[in-house]
């Protein structure tokens, strides 16, 4: 699969909240996009921030191959991502993609399975595309989305089009009160596989749940990175043997069996 560096055009920039923007990107030359797998990411060049030097890695929120559309959900957390909030339709955005190793896709002829996709904060972004790919292969998907409050739960209509959506909020303003791992669906349903993306403590809690019920679990990490290509070795995470995994190249998605998380807890 070839990686490419291209100037994409912003077809639409939709503010989902005052600090979240959904960017729909197209190639202005109509050159076909390379295939993008769920869980892969894009290194975005931030040109309108004087304090930003490196690219920003942003996960793929959705990819519509037939329409040549790449969707990125950006949460403004620092100067670089805040500059991306100002993008308007017609602006250009230099992108390196597709990067990294994404979520495991079942074989085309695999028996229908039930997937639980757990997300917190902007970590819900890659689960939308993963859920859509799973549904298109005939699998059942349940989304479990967590946040501090109602305003943290985004894109619910898009998720509901793909499967059941369960929500937890810490202040009980939406769904069940508490953390994602407190949700009643975990006791009621059996899942064949779990995937999680969000804050590390949340993913570690999900990993412990999955290990306890014996379900395979993948997590998507967001370690600080410079190149996104496996060249600089800045974004490492220890594997079970104490060796460094390169999150940008060997990840960002890992099976929790590869990581030290379950050993250290």
């Amino acid at each position: 699969m070839n990686k490419t560096v291209r100037d994409l055009h912003v077809a639409a920039a939709e503010l989902l909240r005052d600090d979240y923007v959904l960017l729909r990107l197209i190639d202005p030359t109509s050159t076909p996009m390379p295939p993008v797998a769920p869980g892969q990411f894009v290194e975005v060049l931030v040109s309108q921030s004087a304090t930003t030097f490196l690219r920003r890695p942003i996960s793929v929120n959705d990819f519509l191959a037939d329409r040549g559309e790449l969707h990125l959900l950006v949460h403004a957390v620092g100067d670089g991502t805040r500059a991306l909030l100002n993008l308007k339709a017609g602006d250009s955005l230099n992108c390196i993609f597709p990067l990294g190793h994404g979520f495991t896709m079942p074989e085309a002829d695999a028996a229908p399975s039930h997937y639980l996709l757990v997300g917190g904060g902007v970590g819900t972004a890659p689960l939308l595309y993963y859920g859509r790919c799973l549904k298109e292969r005939g699998h059942q998907v349940t989304f479990l989305l967590g946040g501090r409050s109602r305003r943290d739960i985004l894109q619910t209509e898009s998720f509901e089009a793909l499967g059941r959506v369960c929500v937890t909020t810490e202040d009980a303003t939406m769904g069940e009160k508490g953390f994602v791992t407190n949700h009643s669906v975990l006791k009621q349903e059996h899942f064949d596989a779990v995937a999680a993306c969000g804050p590390k403590p949340m993913m570690q809690a999900v990993a412990r749940y999955a290990a306890a019920v014996g379900t395979p679990c993948e997590v998507s990490l967001e370690n600080l990175m410079a190149c996104g290509l496996g060249a600089c070795l800045c974004c490492v995470e220890k594997d079970v043997h104490g060796h460094n995994l390169c999150v940008c190249k060997e990840g960002p998605v890992f099976n929790i069996e590869q990581l030290q998380w379950l050993i250290s807890k």
């Binding site: 030097f53 370690n223 600080l224 410079a226 600089c232 070795l233 800045c234 974004c235 490492v236 460094n244």
Partner: peptide, 23 residues
């Protein structure tokens, strides 16, 4: 060599710091 522990990189004004440590 395994190199140094994470975090190994910090973005700075017009540059970056790294302490990869020859992994």
């Amino acid at each position: 060599r395994e190199g140094n522990d994470y975090p190994r990189m910090a973005e700075t004004a017009q540059g970056m710091l790294n302490c990869v440590g020859l992994q």
